[in-house]
Design a protein around this nucleic acid. Structure first.
Lengths: 148, 148
DNA sequence: CATAATTAAATTGTACGCAATCAAATTTTA
DNA sequence: TAAAATTTGATTGCGTACAATTTAATTATG
């Protein structure tokens, strides 16, 4: 005994999540190439299109990413004239991110993407919503279990 | 009209998968630090512990990763004496990966991990299995929709 | 109110992840 | 069987991810 306990990789939930995530990235790739965006950059824009003039910290919290990822990502977008970065006047530790006109205009070119993705998943709206809710609950439980 | 169509990031299934994947990585981190493995390295070992002496291509297919990711990952493990790489004698295009004694021994130290992770998910075995099956089906539909 | 503690970003270093390209080996086919 | 096509893995370059450290700014505390 003490052997034969290790699961096969295909039996593991974590790998199903991991590989499904990569599959999404692959699926998005040709659509996002048309906007010249990577998938994480697209996520950043989804947050920024929703509400502008947010801090690096706030964006990081929405995306579950830290400044080591956000800072260079936003700097690349700034270099392309899609966003602007400036220190908050009241608290200069914070950097606020705003969209430029070009960054705002990008939104129109992204309209077709969500529907194409829903189609790609082969799920109904209800099925997709249920799966999403389960994953969010799972994510939050994993993160909660970490803070001990 | 033509506006108000973009979903919030929290309404998107892809982001739920993406962020749940990162949450898994975070959760694994302290457990895998004890083995001095990253999460992708751990996945590679799961495949190799299952069956040894496989090609880079085979490992890549199991993990849904290409040679640009597999090659340096395996080379790092080789540098630490955990795996060996050698050309296949019959087809020298292929590189076969085998475990060293140290690589095989690592398996014993990993036994406790799966149970801790299941606990972290807060899911029953049945609930986890159902979620896993849905994600695998989703991944395969996304990949199938890509090959047009 | 001076100093300690905290907070927000940025930076550095390591490790994925993948597209594009390349080289070598094998297989096809004309 | 010689040339073309394919296959396999390695390499390069770019863009995440994240831990650890650093710097600057703000807040808490004696």
């Amino acid at each position: 005994m003490a052997d034969e306990k290790m699961p096969t990789i295909d039996q593991m939930l974590c790998f199903a999540v991991y590989s499904a995530g990569h599959a999404f990235t692959r699926f998005y790739k040709p659509r996002l190439d048309a906007l010249d965006l990577t998938y994480p950059q697209y996520l950043a824009f989804l947050v920024l299109w929703e509400r502008d003039d947010i801090t690096v910290k706030h964006l990081g919290e929405r995306l579950f990413l830290d400044s080591g990822t956000i800072t260079p990502l936003i700097k690349r977008l700034e270099a392309r004239g899609l966003v602007r970065r400036r220190r908050d006047e009241d608290d200069e530790r914070q950097v606020r991110i705003t969209l430029t006109e070009a960054g705002r205009a990008l939104r129109a070119k992204a309209f077709a993407i969500p529907l194409a993705v829903i189609e790609g998943t082969g799920l109904t709206l209800e099925g997709g919503d249920a799966l999403r809710a389960e994953l969010i609950a799972l994510r939050d439980r994993l993160d909660a279990a970490l803070e001990v």
